[in-house]
């Protein structure tokens, strides 16, 4: 077999797919490595097609690679905790601690302090929680961690509601979305439109060294953000959108597609920020109207007719306006506003 070495920089699937047999090993994703950490291994009890299970493995495997497996994870109460560690089995393959729902950030601070104080400062710390544990009940400790700039990477897996308890509204539930506590009935069905609890921007307001958003649809982007975060000490925040088939009422096979659409519609801006300022955005590659995202989810079914036509034009327009605002704010169409 003769293999020609050429300087061609086009690789068929580029960095869109998980792996790529055409690029050098060191440039491949952590997920494409057959000896990857599998920080969250098989046998967990997440629903079929769970975006959070996927996001957690993506993020932690990348962190494991970046830290040479010198990693401790702290977990807030929530789906991820419940489906991974029901006695007598755990799916984790790294040192992992679950304390409470609202205290993951503080526990992680303690872990980092404890490691430093006992001469193991090289061991890195990741805290993780869902949107409830992060944006709502755990916001105080998280803010404290940010303000002290504790050496922790906090990862929020945002599935936009309290899924573990049966899909109740959280501070990150989008407007108009149906949840068990924002039923699709009455004059304004679904969740009220608010200002939204924009965790990444809240994190940026603390001027911590690194804030980034990612989705499970763009592995390379996610992994590179984890790696970048692991190169930095101090507080770092990574907000990962993880679609939830159960809570969103989507087909289990659509999990990645939905995450991709969330980005491509502009509803979920993918960017990174250094010291409080946006430093890079992942531009939209194939722009999509919000409808193509909403239509796939039963939590937005009340916005459409049975035939799939838009029934509530005003609300869809309002959601589109939110997407447009993100596109403008972050320059998601790749245009530089400066």
């Amino acid at each position: 077999m003769s293999t020609e070495r050429t300087p061609v920089r086009f690789y068929q699937v580029g960095s869109f797919a998980v792996g790529n047999r055409l690029v050098e090993l060191e440039r491949r994703s952590a997920q494409s490595d057959p000896t990857r950490a599998n920080s969250l291994t098989s046998g967990h009890r997440a629903c079929a097609g769970c975006g959070e299970a996927l996001g957690a493995r993506y993020a932690l495997d990348a962190a494991m690679r970046a830290s040479d497996h010198q990693l401790v994870a702290v977990n807030a109460t929530g789906c991820l905790e419940v489906f991974s560690t029901p006695y007598p089995e755990t799916s984790w393959r790294l040192p992992w601690l679950h304390s409470l729902f609202g205290n993951a950030a503080a526990v992680a601070t303690g872990v980092a302090a404890g490691l430093r104080a006992t001469g193991r400062g090289h061991v890195r710390v990741v805290a993780q929680g869902g949107d409830g544990g992060t944006a709502d009940i755990g916001l105080g400790p998280l803010s404290g961690m940010f303000e002290r700039n504790d050496d922790v990477l906090y990862i929020c897996y945002d599935n936009e509601a309290y899924m573990n308890t049966g899909v109740q509204r959280s501070g990150t539930t989008p407007g108009a979305a149906r949840t068990a506590t924002t039923e699709a009935v009455g004059e304004h069905p679904g969740n009220r439109f608010g200002q939204g609890k924009d965790l990444p921007r809240l994190a940026m307001a603390h001027e911590i060294p690194y804030v980034a958003t990612a989705t499970v649809a763009d592995l390379f982007d996610l992994e590179s953000k984890v790696e970048r975060a692991m190169e930095i000490s101090g507080s770092r925040y990574l907000h990962i959108l993880v679609p939830c088939p159960l809570g969103w009422g989507s087909v289990s096979s659509d999990t990645i597609r939905l995450a991709r659409l969330a980005h491509q519609t502009g509803l979920f801006p993918v960017f990174e920020a250094r010291d409080g300022d946006v430093s890079a955005v992942t531009p939209i590659r194939h722009p999509e109207p919000v409808e193509s995202y909403l239509r796939l989810q039963k939590r937005f079914a009340h916005l459409f007719t049975r035939e799939g036509e838009v029934a509530d034009r005003a609300t869809v327009a309002r959601i589109q306006a939110q997407a447009s605002r993100n596109i403008t704010r972050y320059g998601l169409l790749g245009r530089d506003d400066d």
Partner: peptide, 19 residues
């Protein structure tokens, strides 16, 4: 064509990469 997508996107690590 061995893009590793199935291997990567499985939330349950239920895909084995054969080499």
């Amino acid at each position: 064509f061995e893009c590793d997508n199935c291997f990567g996107v499985c939330p349950d690590n239920a895909v084995i990469k054969l080499g």
